[in-house]
Design a binder for these strands. Structure first.
Length: 672
DNA sequence: TAGCATCTCCTTTTT
DNA sequence: GGAGATGCTA
């Protein structure tokens, strides 16, 4: 088990005497360290698997970790081992302790969009409708929650009108969530921390289940996550965290890379192990990465080295426009694969923003290259999925007014805004949910007989479905519900073609199937898991697993630089190496170039054998062509290691192009 | 009240 | 070049 590790890695695995920080450079085998350590703890130290928890940040990372642990520890020995994301762990804790926290079973989990639309509604009342301000407030609320600042404190801290407004919205938002029996993503961490602080007996119970914790990508923890870990670990200090400050790319959502330093302050007996040997990339790729990141300040100095051979030069491709760029990358993968008899899945195309996948997708289809786009919100932002999720949510949580409103007229039940307005007034005065208000006698004063009947009918029907769901097979009840509302017919009426309608309906069944699978999987670990739990789990996107699993299929991988973290591919393409894209415009404005540089660093260090960077001279935005400038990061790379293609855009030219772009921007601002 | 058409806003990254 | 909001008509 230990024989495959180098000295440093082995040291990290064998050290169990206290808290341990592993500073692991990119590709230095940190996942091996974590997975081997889990096996070591179980096999050599006699710690039961159900007392060990490994926490990651993304579903992808946790899936991979589960798989790799599964190869080292099997069957009975592995029973009860927790490998999950922070948010999943939080959700599990809340599920089990919801009563203490004052939530009812079946609480809804609001995703980003739900949150935004609720905040928007609340701000409408203050006549604030500016999308930018709404986004800002959402961000501020999220940050407060991540820093464990309560609405009253936020109010006290507010420095100006805008912050006061945001704090007021925060208070209202929180009240509404409670009234809806709902939590949001940030609450998944915040509520467990609150729970453990306020209820030592509950904390005691959970500490008993966590005899050892391992945290991956530690530099990405925020204040509340760090506190959660600290609380769970308690006096034991049985903790291994693995991190790399050069790969901190989530500061924008509250991550505190300084938690790496804080750890040493909080645990005086902290041991630090550095992993500096890279087993992934050729030395040319590594030199590129090191040279780039040397432009950033460093907390802990480390020097990555590898003995994987020098490899081929890093290619930089300049293209006329975004279209040519996509075409170039796709055709190149095509020929490269044929020449070297390789696999499609050995190629990854990475980009800054999800929207960049669209063009690639078109080209890949045109050339019939199999591909897989991971991440993105596509599936869950589909109309049909939102509709059905609305029903599911209302089904298990009738307090969820948001879901009620989404669903009430879908398909049409002839219940319009004025009826809903009055229903809302009534529900408000009685402090009950819209759904529960539907069949109250007191409503008669507010509504006509016709409207009353329609609401009553809806209420009655859903009550029946709820009963059916509780009594027998919930999945069957849900299928029945979808039949009841005749959703398929509705889709056919509202789709541009029968084919589209069918595809949408297929999506609905995919959703139902993965709900079924999620439920089954959860019940394996915990026989008390219910359909309610499975539904909130779906919101965390920890799904479509069976599809992911089949993913031995040979397909080119497309994803954002963010979601590429922790992964590796023989051949990596990073597209859109341009100013305003990477580094992103907003980050430039905010003066946060360093995080963008780390993002580029993360991208570069995903590559094992070849690395190709590309940029376009022109790119369409808002329907008009804009001139683009090659990214400053290209100039920060070691010139001798690069092979430029498309001579017209060599670095000198790049600078001139940047001048042109600046001129363009100026002209635009002057209204020319 | 529903459905269609038009207009306007936006586009960073994730759970 | 998309999605959501608003506005107009049947």
């Amino acid at each position: 088990m230990l024989s495959r590790l180098n000295d440093r890695q082995r040291e990290a695995v064998e050290y169990v005497g206290g808290p341990l920080l592993v500073l692991a450079g990119a590709g230095s085998g940190k996942t091996s360290v974590i997975t081997t350590k889990i096996a070591y703890l179980i096999k050599e130290k006699g710690i039961k698997a159900n007392k060990i928890a490994a926490v990651t940040f993304t579903n992808k990372a946790s899936r991979e970790m589960k798989e790799r642990v599964g190869k080292l520890v099997q069957g009975k020995e592995a029973r009860g081992l927790t490998v999950s994301t922070f948010h999943n762990l939080g959700l599990t804790i809340i599920r089990r302790e919801h009563k203490t926290l004052g939530y009812k079973a079946g609480f809804s989990l609001f995703d980003d969009q739900d949150t935004k639309s609720l905040i928007k509604d609340l701000m409408h009342k203050d006549f604030q409708t500016d999308a930018e301000i709404i986004g800002l407030v959402q961000h501020m609320i999220s940050n407060w929650k991540n820093d464990l600042i309560e609405p009253e404190q936020a109010m006290g801290l507010a420095q100006d009108d805008r912050e006061t407004l945001a704090a007021a919205v925060y208070r209202e938002y929180d009240r509404h969530l409670q009234a809806y029996n709902a939590v949001d993503f940030d609450d998944l961490i915040r509520l467990p921390v609150r729970l453990f602080r306020d209820h030592p007996d509950v904390l005691d119970r959970w500490q008993n289940r966590m005899h050892y914790m391992l945290v991956d990508e530690y530099q990405d923890t925020n204040v509340s996550q760090y506190l959660l870990v600290k609380l769970l670990i308690g006096y034991r200090g049985a903790l291994t965290v693995v991190g790399d400050d050069d790969q901190s790319i989530y500061a924008w959502r509250g991550a505190r890379p300084e938690n790496l330093i804080k750890l040493g302050e909080d645990f005086k007996n902290l041991k630090i192990v550095k992993l500096e040997q890279n087993y992934r990339s050729t030395s040319l790729i590594l030199r590129c990465a090191n040279t780039l990141i040397a432009n950033n300040p460093h907390v802990y100095e480390k020097t990555l080295w590898s003995n994987m051979g020098s490899g081929s030069p890093i290619r930089v491709i300049s293209c006329r426009n975004e279209d040519a760029e996509a075409e170039r990358v796709v055709t190149e993968i095509l020929t490269h694969r044929i020449k070297n008899d390789g696999h499609y899945k050995d190629f990854a195309i990475l980009y800054r923003g999800n929207h960049q996948a669209r063009l690639l997708e078109i080209k890949l289809q045109a050339y019939q290259v199999p591909y897989k786009i991971s991440g993105g919100t596509s599936f869950f932002s589909r109309h049909e999925i939102k509709d059905i999720m609305g029903y599911l949510r209302l089904l298990v949580n009738p307090e969820d007014d948001n879901a009620f409103l989404r669903v009430i007229n879908m398909p049409r039940r002839e219940i319009g805004p004025s009826t809903l307005e009055r229903l809302g007034t009534y529900a408000n005065s009685r402090h009950i949910s819209l759904f529960n208000a539907c069949d109250e006698l007191g409503l008669e004063q507010y509504l006509s007989g016709k409207a009353l009947e329609k609401l009553g009918r809806f209420n009655h029907w859903l009550q029946q479905t709820i009963k059916r769901c509780a009594q027998d097979d919930p999945i069957a009840a849900i299928r029945q519900m979808i039949q009841d509302i005749d959703y398929e017919a509705w889709l056919h009426q509202n789709s541009s073609s029968p084919q589209v309608a069918e595809r949408r309906m297929a999506n609905v069944w995919i959703l139902v199937d993965s709900l079924r699978d999620t439920l089954a999987r959860m019940q394996e670990e915990d026989d008390e898991a219910t359909i309610e739990d499975a539904i909130s789990r779906l919101v965390l996107r920890d799904m479509l697993e069976q599809q992911e699993k089949e993913d031995d299929s040979d397909r080119v991988q497309l994803m954002t630089l963010h979601s590429a973290k922790g992964l590796e591919y023989p051949h990596v393409y990073i597209i859109g190496m341009e100013e305003d894209l990477l580094p992103h415009r907003n980050s430039i404005d905010e003066g946060n170039i360093e995080e963008e540089r780390r993002l580029a660093y993360v991208g570069i260090t995903r590559a094992r054998e070849t690395l190709t960077l590309s940029f376009a001279s022109q790119r369409k935005q808002f329907g008009e062509m804009l001139n683009c400038t090659p990214s400053r990061f290209l100039e920060e790379l070691p010139e001798g290691d690069l092979a430029w293609e498309g001579k017209e855009n060599a670095p000198d030219e790049a600078k001139r192009a940047r001048g042109h772009a600046a001129l363009d921007a100026l002209k635009k601002r002057l209204g020319g």
